[in-house]
Design a protein around this nucleic acid. Structure first.
Lengths: 146, 146
DNA sequence: TAAAACTGTACCAAAAAGGTATAGATTTAA
DNA sequence: TTAAATCTATACCTTTTTGGTACAGTTTTA
C-alpha cells in the first residue's frame, strides 16, 4: 500500500519544477536529496511518459510539459510506478486468483471499487495544490474529496 | 500502491470464515488456493492481531473473533501488512525526507491527507459487504463513499 | 494414546526496489 | 571548432521485501 521511493522522489522533483521552471538534473538532485544517477533515471522516465520535456546541452535541463494545474499526483505515480492497482487481480497483465476459467474472481468488484476511488482521489490532487504552501490538512481533504 | 499477496490471501480467508464459521487450515488453504504452510503463517498473524481466534486439537480450526459487520477491509490489511502508509514519510518509524531538523517535510500534509482518505474508505468496507454476493460496482462505490 | 489440529522460529529463494557505471549523443559558449 | 555541460540508453549490481518451506514442538479429543 505504499508508493515506491522512486515515485516519492518523482513527486518532489515535479513539484520543484513547477516552482522553478527549467532546471538541470544536478540542481534537482541536490535539492530533493536523491543521488544524481537515480534522479536522471527518474527524469528519463518522466520525460518518456510525457510529464516533462528535456533540453540537452549547455544550459539544458527539464521543465514541465503541462501546467502544474493540469498535472495530478495520479499522473506522476502512474508514470513512475505504472498502473495503480491495489491488488494483482486488477492488473491488465494478470488473471484473478482462484479461477481456472479466466472469469473474474469472487472479490474482483470489491478490489476494483476501492481502486477506482483511490485513483479518483489521487486525480483530484494537482501538482499546483501540492506546491501551494501551507494548505492545512482539512482543506486538502476537502479538495481531494471535491 | 499494492497490498501484498499475503493481505490478498488474508482477505479471502477471512471472507471464507465469515461464510462458513469454524474452519481448519487445510480446508481453507484448498479453498483459497494458498499453500498450507503459508496459509498457517497468515492465520497465526490474524490470530495474534485479534482478527480471528483459534481452537487447537482434533476438530479445531479458526473462526472470526468479531462479526463480519464489525471487521473491515482496513482491519485485515493493517493486521497483515502493517500500518497503511502511502509514503515512507508517514511511517511512525521514519522521519520525513529532506530535513535534518526532524520537522515534517514540505509535502507531508499532502501525503497525510491522501493517506487519511484511503484509510477512511477502506474502513467503510466491511467483510460482510465483501461477502454479500453480486453487489454491483456502482453500489459498492456508494457504500465506500458513504 | 495417536491423530488432527494449531504454534513458533528459523530459514531460504525469487522478485522488486534502489542505485551505479559506462559509453555515447547534443548543444552551446568561448 | 572544440571542450564542457547536459541529457540518453542500457546494463549491471546490491539490498530489501516478499512469498514460501521446514521442523520441532504443544493441545485437544475421539
Amino acid at each position: 500500500m505504499r508508493i515506491t521511493q522512486e515515485a516519492d522522489y518523482a513527486l518532489r522533483i515535479v513539484s520543484l519544477l513547477a516552482q522553478k521552471g527549467l532546471l538541470g538534473a544536478p540542481e534537482m538532485s541536490e535539492n530533493v536529496k536523491v543521488p544524481q544517477g537515480f534522479a536522471m533515471k527518474i527524469l528519463r522516465k518522466l520525460t518518456s511518459e510525457g510529464i516533462i520535456r528535456s533540453k540537452r546541452g549547455v544550459n539544458g535541463g527539464y521543465a514541465l510539459s503541462r501546467s502544474s494545474e493540469e498535472l495530478t499526483v495520479a499522473d506522476i505515480i502512474e508514470a513512475v510506478d505504472g498502473e495503480i492497482a491495489i491488488s494483482k487481480c486488477l492488473l491488465s497483465t494478470h488473471d484473478c486468483l482462484n479461477n481456472p476459467d479466466k472469469s473474474r474472481c469472487r472479490y474482483h468488484n470489491v478490489f476494483a471499487s476501492v481502486n477506482e476511488i483511490i485513483k479518483e482521489r489521487l486525480s483530484r490532487l494537482t501538482i499546483k495544490t501540492m506546491v501551494d504552501a501551507n494548505i492545512p490538512m482539512e482543506e486538502l481533504i476537502k479538495i481531494i474529496n471535491n
